[in-house]
Nucleic acid binder design. Structure first.
Length: 430
RNA sequence: CGGGCUGUAGUGUAGUGGUAGCACGAGUCCUUCGGGAGGAUUUAGCUCCGGUUCGAAUCCGGGCAGCCCGACCA
């Protein structure tokens, strides 16, 4: 992609209507545009990141037996009445009437919608377990949107639902999902605490939240610096709790954190309400045991912007970066003695053929401006081709995250980049 | 939903009663060419409604919008 063709440019100044540093960077770099409070457009660069997050999550969900489907956001009130959640969810539900005066809601979550579907398709236990997920927009009438993408009213979420024949099976799958989530956040290169939390209105049993430390977060979490055990302050009964539940040492500290994912054991609440039954080994009719597992994709993006940046801009993990490489040809216009453009173009094509996504800065701008854009966009590698580097028959390669600069012979560029993409991330999305 | 703050060119800002200025951006031309370079020229604005006043970006009331704190948050 030629930088001169990008539909949106970077800005030098922070927007006046964003407060959190991550949101300011995302706007300045041209990843998102705020339409109104709590509602954002993902611009082309931002959408590429969002799609990469989705690809990462799909890979992990498919790997644990998840099957993707896509449910509607538009739902009739009747569905929510079955579980009583029209009342429970209350004001957070966006409610509307259609032209025939039918009451509808834009779904904030899909336990109810999927349960209503599964009633028609679960008979006997021959097909259990069943794991279904989707990546779809959710709507929640948040009384107060906050911190850019961290808390929005319309947001893309991956929601996985499990249907098991027994509590034992649910418990096993719950652990499997937990491990998949750990892998996902590791690939995102964020430290996510697996945090004990309350089951909310869903269940009496505890759930787990995946918490990333950030001042833009809205939750308070106690974390143990010794063993990494963490629990949400909302489940701390004794205000004076000092010792860690896990290792018993007095090393718990309170942090602010963003909840980037959570997992719930739903039990039989929804299966009983909707009539999802199976037959156990004794031949008895028993309710299906369910679980619910969510990850906010935009929230992940917003959180990374909060926690991964420096004075020059964003720093994306390799698997999520909108482009792998920012290629800067530097030449004196009209005096291209060293064939800078020709060689830069050849490298551009070679790298593209090797499967890398590249931004080629073809603009007639000063070097500083191009470097500045490479930095603020947070592209993992910056390649510079100039008369200076070509004297060494080389290309300068700078790693965004570490600032490390290497002069690489022109013929070895593809190899160097390929090595970086594998070793630099520990995780590769196909 | 309570409390606080704020709305001025595309963006960021100055302007507290007397006809709105700067910077960035964008366009054209020239110079420059490894960290947002320089010059010339062009471009474009007071959130809306009402009130006070000879006169309102400025004061008052209301609406709308945004941000922060709190409440809320499957």
């Amino acid at each position: 992609m030629y930088v001169s063709k990008l539909a949106f440019r970077t800005k030098k100044e922070n927007p006046s209507d964003e407060f959190s540093p991550g949101a300011q960077l995302l706007v300045r770099a041209g990843f998102v545009e705020k339409n109104f409070s709590g509602v954002y457009t993902y611009l082309p660069l931002g959408l590429r990141v969002l799609k990469n997050v989705a690809a990462l999550i799909r890979k992990e969900m498919d790997a644990i037996g998840g099957q993707e489907l896509l449910m509607p956001a538009l739902t009739p009130k009747a569905i929510w009445d079955i579980s009583g959640r029209w009342e429970v969810l209350g004001d957070i539900l966006y409610k509307l009437k259609d032209g025939q005066d039918k009451t509808l809601s834009l779904a904030p979550t899909h336990e109810d919608v999927l349960s209503a579907i599964m009633v028609h398709h679960l008979s006997g236990n021959d097909r259990l377990p069943i794991y279904l997920y989707q990546i779809q927009n959710k709507f929640r009438d948040e009384p107060r949107a906050k911190s850019g993408l961290i808390r929005t009213r319309e947001f893309l979420m991956k929601d996985l639902y499990s249907f098991n024949a027994s509590v034992d099976d649910l418990n096993k799958f719950y652990e499997i999902v937990k491990e998949a989530y750990v892998r996902i956040f590791k690939a995102c290169e964020v430290k996510a605490y697996v945090t004990q939390a309350s089951g909310g209105t869903f269940s009496k049993e505890n759930s787990h939240e995946f918490m990333v430390e950030s001042s833009a977060g809205e939750d308070r979490v106690l974390v143990c610096s010794e063993c990494s055990f963490a629990k949400n302050m909302e489940v701390v009964n004794d205000e004076k709790q000092q010792g860690c539940d896990e290792c018993k040492k007095s090393t718990m500290q309170e942090i602010k954190a963003v909840e980037v994912g959570n997992i719930f054991k739903l039990g039989t609440k929804f299966s009983e309400a909707f009539g999802l039954y199976t037959t156990n080994e004794e031949g008895d009719k028993v309710p299906v045991v369910m679980g619910s597992y969510g990850i906010g994709l935009g929230r992940i993006m917003g959180t990374i912007a909060e926690v991964s940046s420096d004075d020059h801009g964003l720093i994306w993990p390799t698997v999520l970066a909108p482009y792998h490489i920012y290629l800067v040809p530097l030449e004196k216009s009209g005096v291209d003695l060293g064939n800078v453009t020709e060689i830069a173009q050849r490298i551009y094509k070679d790298l593209q053929e090797s499967g890398f996504d590249i931004l080629y800065d073809d603009r007639e701008k000063s070097a500083g401006e191009k470097f500045g854009d490479a930095d603020i966009l947070g592209i993992p590698l910056r390649l510079v081709v100039s008369e200076k580097t070509l004297k060494e028959n080389s290309v300068e390669i700078k790693e965004r995250k570490t600032g490390k600069i290497t002069l690489v012979p022109v013929g070895l560029v593809t190899e160097f980049v390929g090595h970086f993409m594998v070793s630099g991330s520990q995780y590769v999305v196909n």
